[in-house]
């Protein structure tokens, strides 16, 4: 067994195959079966330097519908994957800044199209850079493919407002990954960002507060061990691995990180991300709110 695989296995995750180390990736930069994808919050970082052979997927331009509040459709996903030279067999290896926040968001969107053959680089860009590994400005080009996208299927991994209402009324569990100030309703929106604000503050009744970044080691961006994650989500927030869980934040990006943690690192089968999140719930008429 390779040392890099052992590093992941030692952390005790339910689905360790979803995570790779920086060492693993460094040994496979030219592997044609994988496509390395960088997804960042900071739009300058990829251009400034990225892992060799990594393509960029931008969360705004590549994954969101430019007009409606929704993700790209099957035609858009197909065009994207053709452009980056992917096939249905391609293994996507995502990494990025901000503790892989945007990498997991991109991975979650890929799941909506049934492309679940994804990996996340433990520690993401931060760990790669801290280890002094090579970055390049050279943008790779891959021969376009004839990838055919499946229709988007939101049912399994995405929750809409009415799904959340039914979930709530059935007594199922929710995790709110926003900051404590947002959870408590003392902050309606981030200053100078009213587009992501809400008319009402608080949280969905019954939701437990577990800010998303608690799942990572801040010094290198790696995920906590399974035992530490269980302490966070199960002992503190009361989840059980058999639970039907909905996670949410403000627009569904931070919560995709927690979705990845629960689904892959702790092995929860039934986790959905409510991307309408607080910008929808806190602005909707008549929905229940708790403070």
């Amino acid at each position: 067994m390779s040392a890099t695989l052992t590093q992941i296995l030692e952390k005790g995750y339910a689905r360790p195959e979803a995570l790779v180390t920086t060492e693993w990736l460094a040994e496979r930069l030219d592997d044609p079966s994988i496509r390395i994808v960088e997804s960042n919050e900071d739009p300058l970082l990829y251009v400034q330097g990225h892992i060799r052979n990594a393509v960029e997927i931008d969360w705004v331009r590549d994954l969101n519908d430019p007009l409606r509040r929704d993700y790209l459709d099957a035609a858009g996903f197909q065009a994207l994957l053709r452009r980056i030279g992917a096939t249905s067999e391609t293994i996507f290896v995502f990494y990025g800044d901000k503790n892989n926040w945007w990498a997991t968001y991109a991975a979650w969107v890929f799941h909506l199209f049934g492309h679940t053959n994804v990996r996340i680089v433990d520690g993401g860009r931060l760990k790669w850079v801290k280890e002094g590994r090579e970055l390049t400005k050279e943008v790779p080009t891959f021969a376009p493919t004839d990838y055919v996208a499946q229709p988007r299927n939101d049912e399994r991994f995405r929750a809409y407002r009415d799904d959340v209402l039914r979930h709530l009324n059935a007594g199922n569990k929710l995790i709110d990954v926003r900051s404590p100030e947002e959870f408590n309703g003392t902050r309606l929106h981030m200053e100078n960002y009213p587009n992501e604000g809400a008319l009402r503050g608080g949280h969905i009744p019954g939701a437990k507060s577990v800010p998303w970044a608690k799942a990572v080691n801040p010094e290198d961006g790696t995920f906590l061990s399974a035992d530490s994650l269980k302490a966070l989500y199960e002992e503190t927030a009361g989840l059980e691995s058999t639970d039907d869980v909905v996670v949410y934040c403000r627009i569904g990006e931070r919560s995709s990180h927690t979705w990845f943690v629960l689904r892959y690192l702790l092995g929860y089968e039934n986790v959905r991300n409510y991307d309408g999140s607080w910008t929808e719930w806190g602005n909707s008429v008549g929905l229940p709110i708790e403070k």
Binding site: E41, D42, P43, K98, E191, Y193, I251, E253
Partner: peptide, 14 residues
């Protein structure tokens, strides 16, 4: 920077 800034990035820079 253009309009494609996330909320967090926008907050810090502003």
């Amino acid at each position: 920077f253009g309009r494609d800034l996330s909320m967090g990035k926008s907050m810090g820079l502003s």
